[in-house]
């Protein structure tokens, strides 16, 4: 059986992708979660863009970060989405049907990861553009103007475009991290606990540790802190980690989680 699936990997992957797509599209939950992600992200971004202000002493806030701050919340619903893609199947026993239909477990996981990435990217783009747009509308009213030394730049500006599109990639990597964790632990509730712990506990730890070296290293390895460095457009030389290397750290977390998930998934009985 393994030999037969191994000889036709292409069609099997396509079939697996198709069946995963059908599973997503025919129940209302996933679509609701994605819409919720866009709404929550844009909503919190707008709230924070409305709350920050620039004094006469000059802006101490990065306009891109303030405008895109809603991703701190949007990542939570994306994590649910990704965790349920695997954890939900274990909960309902559906995983047995899935694995009967597609026996190559690597194929199943690859199909899930590919579809997840595509869908999250599709949801992330309106979330990022919507957040950027609300920031663009609200921030000038709060003093983010040229007189205070902050120029709000359009999407044609390199760092701004990188911050906006990078936030979309950030969401996709959080989704893959969650998928990996859920595949490894198989229980959806535990998986979401671990993912939210990884995302939210590190920033708290960063605030607690006072040794400057530890402080810096924690910011460099924390998935949320490092990953959101992709939104930095001002004062890059003072940041503990550069934008792309920060996103790289999150990618490493996602890769590690997927690797652990994959090795457990291919070995263990479903």
């Amino acid at each position: 059986m393994t030999a037969a699936t191994g000889s036709r990997p292409g069609p099997e992957l396509l079939r697996a992708l198709h069946s995963e797509w059908t599973k997503l599209r025919t129940v209302p939950g996933p679509a609701t979660l994605l819409i919720l992600t866009v709404l929550l992200t844009v909503g919190l971004s707008a709230g924070i863009a409305g709350a920050v202000s620039c004094g006469s002493a000059g802006c101490q806030q990065d306009p891109a970060r303030s405008g895109l701050a809603g991703f701190a919340l949007g990542q939570a619903t994306i994590a649910i989405f990704a965790v349920l893609m695997v954890g939900g199947e274990y909960g309902s026993g559906m995983i047995r049907s899935t694995l009967t239909a597609t026996t190559g477990r690597t194929t199943v996981l690859a199909a899930k990861a590919a579809l997840l990435t595509a869908v999250v990217l599709a949801a992330g783009i309106p979330a990022a553009l919507g957040s950027w747009l609300t920031g663009r509308l609200l921030l000038p009213g709060n003093g983010f103007t040229a007189e205070h030394g902050t120029q709000l730049l359009g999407l044609g500006d390199g760092p701004t475009l990188r911050a906006v599109l990078g936030s979309v990639l950030y969401l996709a990597l959080v989704a893959l991290l969650s998928l990996g964790v859920a595949t490894a632990v198989r229980d959806a509730a535990t998986a979401i606990g671990i993912v939210l712990g990884l995302l939210y506990l590190f920033p708290i730890m960063v605030g607690l540790v006072t040794n400057p070296d530890w402080h810096r290293h924690l910011q460099q390895i924390a998935p949320m802190n490092a990953g959101l460095a992709i939104q930095d457009t001002v004062g890059l030389d003072q940041m503990p980690i550069g934008p792309w290397s920060g996103l790289g750290v999150l990618a490493a977390w996602a890769a590690a989680a997927l690797l652990i998930g994959w090795s457990v998934f291919t070995v263990r009985d479903a």
């Binding site: 924070i48 920050v52 806030q61 919340l73 939570a76 606990g193 939210y200 920033p203 708290i204």
Partner: peptide, 21 residues
């Protein structure tokens, strides 16, 4: 789990370790 974590922990994260004034 997500709703309770987001309601209890995220505000603290935003308040102490982020961009919020």
């Amino acid at each position: 789990v997500t709703i309770t974590v987001v309601l209890v922990v995220l505000p603290y994260v935003l308040a102490v370790a982020s961009v919020l004034p």
